[in-house]
Amino acid sequence: MKQQDNALETKALNLYYGSAQALIDVDIQIPKNQVTALIGPSGCGKSTLLRCFNRMNDLIPDCTISGSILYHGEEITGRSTDVVELRKRIGMVFQQPNPFPKSIYENVIYGPKVHGVRDRKQLDEIAEKSLKGAAIWEEVRERLHDAARGLSGGQQQRLCIARTLSVGPDIILMDEPCSALDPIATAKIENLITELKDEYTVVIVTHNMQQAARVSDYTGFMYMGRLIEFDSTPVIFEKPKEELTENYITGRFG
């Protein structure tokens, strides 16, 4: 794998919440325009790692990191990094669908407005494009000005994905995006994820191993703050090199 093909890369990444270490010497390379899944038992650090990529850990008091994180080869851990610009390029979808208590339309144009787009026509175009990109346009086109929180859970989550697409990121981080959804809604989101990789790099944290196997191209297995193994998804699920990984995959713990 060549260096420039990596959308994200960490080197010797350590992260502490106060004095508790949550990530230990993590080296990972997230390939561009692929879906990468992070799996592992609860508390293994997979969400923490995900939140490093768009600096959401900045919001947690006394969270410190060492090591380096590269976004297309550019260091993003420093103080000089423009976090606002970074988050514009690296979008995030959360575990619980969290649309704002506004209308569907206002949810999708919130991001562009924040970044200075004021022209109504342009906003309308962005809204339509993003909602289409998140495969929810047909369901909501007739009621764009209804409250977003009146949508079903699965629709809300796709709206959140549309909201993420609206600011034109090239990477989308997903933190267990289906854990609050039923199987049908989950299937729709999974289909969407495979479609998204044409244009975007997707990193998804999931508890659900079948989901990782279904949607991802690469899989990283994490345990107790360490990245135990990282490889293409078929390798991880069929012939993992590490015994820990095998035990987890086969359900012997976790």
């Binding site: 768009n54 704002f100 991001g111 407005k113």
Partner: peptide, 23 residues
């Protein structure tokens, strides 16, 4: 989660306050 969502879209804290939290 509203704060997180807004900040993750690249909004500043003030934009988050005015655009999401106050409403």
């Amino acid at each position: 989660e509203y704060r997180a969502a807004s900040l993750a879209l690249g909004a500043t804290r003030w934009q988050t306050i005015i655009g999401v939290i106050i409403p």
